[in-house]
């Protein structure tokens, strides 16, 4: 995960070549690097730069279902900033992200630590914690939606053993977040644990041995050696989860039967769902485009905050 981007110096070929070949070779050396990166940048221009620029352009217009289009300047942004529904979506997104990510990271860390021990069936166990990842996201959301059904779901049935009244997981805000966070965590905890495990295995064992000689307990070793040494891996995992979590769409949408409203009152509507609703259910393209820019801003802030948090964890010890 090193971020250094310095070029390495390339030495010029020593051997003499015939003139034609030398010319060709020089073109090869000079031009080929650009040719090799060009597919990416051509695609970037077509499907990266173009959409970004046009998202900005669209966001300055007001589109109506009846078919009219009017210049509105920053009107869409101004309207979004005071739109309760938009803020509701932001709160939901951030809320579900936190509710999903914090336990997920902790569980993944402990799971990775457990997976790092020696035991039989190691590969089989590693594979089974990765199993959720190879299922398809909508299929799993369908299953969880059934498990969380109000009248016949297994979750409510089990809760009823403890005298808990049937929860309407799709109507109440916090329960709906919990249900969705469960789906997300089920899917990603094992994957992140495997990534952490890979990071753990690069930590030199003599560090632990030295610590053991000094009388450090296992728990202490985990907090003082494993965690700080895992920092680069954690940055990668957390940034990934941030982008994934803040653009959450599939699970909450399927949880409401493919509907992007996210509950009768938008109890679990995320920003991505808000964008689709505005753009493709109410056909206000300008409003959706403006919301997309604000989502981008949200991701940048989220990534920065997480980066700083992770850097602090075990950083200075």
């Amino acid at each position: 995960m090193s971020l250094d981007t310095l070029p390495r110096t390339a030495r010029t070929p020593r051997r003499d070549h015939p003139p034609g070949r030398r010319w060709r070779s020089r073109v090869d050396v000079k031009a080929m690097p650009y040719v090799l990166v060009s597919p990416y940048f051509l695609l970037f221009a077509a499907f990266g730069l173009f959409p970004l620029a046009f998202t900005l352009y669209y966001s300055l217009y007001d589109y109506d279902l009846a078919g009219t289009t009017e210049w509105t300047g920053l009107g869409n942004y101004a309207a979004l900033l005071v739109d309760e529904d938009f803020w509701n979506a932001v709160v939901n997104t951030v809320g579900m992200f936190v509710l999903a990510t914090v336990p997920q990271m902790l569980l993944a860390l402990f799971l990775a630590n457990a997976l790092n021990k020696r035991f039989r069936l190691r590969l089989a166990i590693r594979m089974s914690v990765l199993l959720p990842l190879v299922t398809s996201v909508v299929a799993v959301a369908v299953v969880f939606t059934q498990l969380f059904a109000r009248d016949w779901g297994l979750v409510n049935y089990i809760l009823s053993w403890f005298g808990v009244d049937a929860t309407n997981w799709r109507a109440e805000r916090i329960p709906s977040w919990l249900a969705i966070a469960t789906m997300v965590d089920w899917r990603w905890t094992g994957y992140n644990a495997i990534i952490f495990l890979a990071g753990m295995q690069t930590i030199p064992r003599d560090l632990y041995e030295a610590a053991a000689i000094d009388g450090a307990s296992r728990r202490r070793q985990f907090w003082q050696i494993t965690l700080p040494m895992l920092r680069p891996t954690m940055i990668f995992v957390v940034l990934n989860s941030t982008i994934g979590g803040l653009t959450l769409f599939s699970e909450p949408t399927t949880f409401y039967n493919g509907n992007v409203d996210g509950g009768s009152q938008g109890q679990f509507q995320t920003v991505a769902m808000f964008i689709v609703k505005q753009g493709f259910r109410e056909f206000d393209y300008g409003y959706a485009a403006a919301a997309a820019w604000l989502l981008f801003l949200l991701i940048l802030i989220g990534a920065l905050v997480n980066f700083l948090v992770v850097r602090r964890i075990g950083g200075t010890k």
Binding site: N168, A171, E172, R173, G263, S264, Q265, Q267
Partner: peptide, 9 residues
Amino acid sequence: VVQGMDDGS
């Protein structure tokens, strides 16, 4: 909203 009154939201 009519439904939301009913489900408590």
